[in-house]
Design a protein around this nucleic acid. Structure first.
Lengths: 205, 205
DNA sequence: GTCTATAATTTGATAGAC
DNA sequence: GTCTATCAAATTATAGAC
């Protein structure tokens, strides 16, 4: 129970190192030796705590996937108004991505390399995003004439695209626009409001 | 999946096979044996035509990268009006991505794993996207009061995000929205007009 | 040019001392 | 729990026959 807080345990060091190596190199590109070096421990110790590379990867991947997805539901299923949901989503989601910039590309890439496994293991439970309520709400707002006529599906895709893509294309954006780390962070900070404003401007009457 | 034609030369068969394997598994995950099998030839022949795995990868990667990027410039640097450029960009770009759905994730992923090499080798020449003209055009339209006040930078990021992201997140979107291949294609076809309309609705006065 | 066989290297995983 | 040493399998690359 009484752990010295400054020193993390071997298991914690391994998990932190594995997260760093897997998210930057991917499952196929990561080396157990890289993770051991990064954790400052021996390679054999990885197998002592986590049976295999695949087991270790799954721990990191599922933690990442759950960070990326389920929070969407909390917003979609709340009782806020449409505009409130849009503002809340952009703010919270871009905040989350800013804290884990490598996460979206890592998860999307691994998912696309193994869609079947992804579906079964991650969303076999209760984590499936249920955008239906959000889609229905948009349709209702359109029909009641509160917003312009727009496809709920495309509005949803637009919202998510504008929040996540900048992190997927981070190195590309930084290079083409000549942004250093701090400038990139600032631009993402601005987007929390800019994206919501952009969307609302497009759909409000 | 495309069958590799019997009458094409060995080199062509290898390139087609390498494209398929590399874009689906990435550099680290691809196996020379996979490529040889896919091409219907022997593994040694890969090394006869292309010295090493890395050389073969570079051919595929640079071809893919050039398909993804330089066409942007043609639109950005044309003399069309802002609205025309937006409509042209969404239409042409989504068409291009629909023809190569695996390309964006492949390129973005490999770029992020090696940003330095990417910068030097791909854009050391004349292929660097020059969005400056487009950004200036937006600023001019804002100042002259033709469109709403908006950050040119964020408008550019929004435009590209909405065009490319759906292909990066293709498996995720298909699963959460329950779309088969044909339905996904149809949704992307709709987006050619929907995205342009969405943007123009947001910025027009 | 294309193949079979094999070398050389990398890498995930284990054995066993402490 | 942690280490060193080592195995076994996978994988890139080459040699040499045809």
């Amino acid at each position: 129970m009484d752990k010295i807080k400054n020193e993390s345990s071997a298991e914690e060091k391994i998990l932190a190192a594995a997260k760093k190596v897997f998210t930057s190199k991917g499952m196929a590109g990561a080396r157990m030796q890289d993770i051991a070096d990064e954790a400052g421990i021996n390679k054999a110790l990885l197998h002592y705590y986590f049976r295999s590379k695949e087991k270790l990867f799954e721990v990191i991947f599922f933690e990442a996937a759950q960070k990326l997805f389920p929070r969407i539901n909390l917003i979609f299923e709340s009782n806020s108004t449409l505009f409130e949901k849009i503002e809340k989503f952009t703010d919270e989601y871009i905040t989350l991505m800013s804290e884990n910039p490598y996460l979206p590309l890592f998860v999307l890439n691994e998912v696309s390399k193994n869609p079947e496994v992804f579906m079964k293991k991650i969303w076999g439970k209760q984590n499936i995003p249920q955008p239906q309520k959000f889609l229905t709400q948009i349709e209702r707002e359109v029909k009641s004439g509160n917003i312009k006529k727009i496809s709920p599906l495309h509005l949803l895709i637009n919202l998510i695209s504008m929040c996540i893509f900048p992190f997927v294309a981070k190195p590309m954006i930084q290079f083409t626009l000549g942004l250093d780390e701090m400038q990139f962070r600032n631009v993402m900070e601005q987007r929390k409001k800019e994206v919501a404003k952009f969307i609302i401007d497009s759909i409000k009457k």
